[in-house]
């Protein structure tokens, strides 16, 4: 009886229905960009984003002027499909456009395959339980990387350079008055052949902490922190000095949550802005996304 009262109280406070409204990493930019809610089976995602105000962060943590593009546009297309009640997968591809002064160049970026398995779901009677999902992803290095670049200001760079396998989890309390959750992803990058030898980037640890609130029954506002730590890289099995990376970023996302039909999401990001950042890039970004059930 107590749980029924607590559940009704939570739903009353949140103005929420019986759905879970996404996950802790959804809309953060730190994981797969589109997921399926429990009642959905197919969805299409189209996102248009731009990053600008770049500054390099060196191994001492000092901010420097960037010699790269002034702005990087990204057109992202994704399709997500449910396979069972608890498992769905998505494929994500993108097209980049880099601009510097009056020059610009476009190209294909990396492709990612993502799978989520829902291990635990709260119910109306147990709203205090988190939604718990297992994440598995594989990024394929299909886009041109820094080490393959031929253009001044890296205008022709759209990819990370190495493929990477990710595994992690996402815990989300989406039926409470205050939405909150956290995610963890671990990345194992593949080795990359570069002119200087075989480059093995270090393993990645990514933490995402998210909080938010339902502004209206079908309008969600969330924000949070993404903290990346990557171990030192190796060139021909020799560890490279001061090559470990740290990057703490902020995000704020406003998203409509119509149970049927189309939804919109706008995400504001500020990369490399919190605490001790090393060997990364600081930038502002904004992404507008459209999602449609098929």
């Amino acid at each position: 009886m107590g749980r029924v009262i607590l559940g009704l109280f939570c739903l009353f406070l949140s103005g929420n229905a019986t759905t879970l409204w996404a996950c802790s990493s959804c809309g953060s930019g730190g994981a797969d960009p589109v997921i399926l809610n429990p009642s959905e089976s197919h969805k299409l995602y189209l996102g248009l984003g731009v990053q600008s105000a770049f500054q390099d962060i060196d191994s001492q943590g000092q901010l420097r002027k960037s010699d790269g593009p002034d702005s990087k546009w990204l057109l992202e297309l994704a399709y997500v499909r449910r396979f069972t009640n608890r498992i769905f997968a998505s494929v994500v591809g993108d097209l980049g456009l880099n601009q510097k002064h009056d020059r610009e160049q476009a190209g294909v970026g990396d492709v990612t395959l993502n799978t989520r398995a829902t291990l635990l779901q709260p119910t109306m009677l147990e709203p205090e339980l988190p939604q718990l999902q297992l994440l598995l992803s594989r990024r394929f290095a299909t886009g041109r990387s820094v080490n393959q670049s031929r253009e001044e200001a890296y205008l022709d760079v759209y990819g990370a350079g190495s493929s990477e396998f990710y595994a992690g989890f996402d815990a989300w309390w989406g039926m409470m008055p205050v939405l909150f959750g956290f995610s963890y992803l671990h990345g194992w990058p593949s080795a990359e052949e570069i002119p200087e030898g075989t480059l093995q980037q270090g393993q990645l640890q990514r933490f995402i902490v998210t909080g938010g609130h339902m502004l209206a029954p079908e309008l969600k506002l969330i924000g949070g922190v993404i903290a990346d730590q990557r171990r030192a890289s190796e060139l021909d099995t020799r560890e490279q000095e001061r090559s470990s990376r740290r990057l703490q970023s902020l995000f704020l996302t406003l998203e409509t949550l119509h149970p049927e039909g189309d939804n919109l999401r706008v995400t504001l990001t500020r990369r490399g802005v919190l605490g001790d950042n090393r060997n990364g890039v600081s930038a502002w970004g904004i992404t507008l996304a459209w999602m449609s059930l098929l």
């Binding site: 001492q60 943590g61 000092q62 901010l63 909080g211 938010g212 609130h213 502004l215 506002l221 924000g223 902020l250 704020l252 500020r270 802005v273 919190l274 605490g275 950042n277 600081s282």
Partner: peptide, 24 residues
Amino acid sequence: MRLIILFSFLSAVTLSACGSSSSS
């Protein structure tokens, strides 16, 4: 509630940006 969230985000961005600027 929504104002508090917005204010917190923008304050964090502003404060951290001010603190991280340096040159060698």
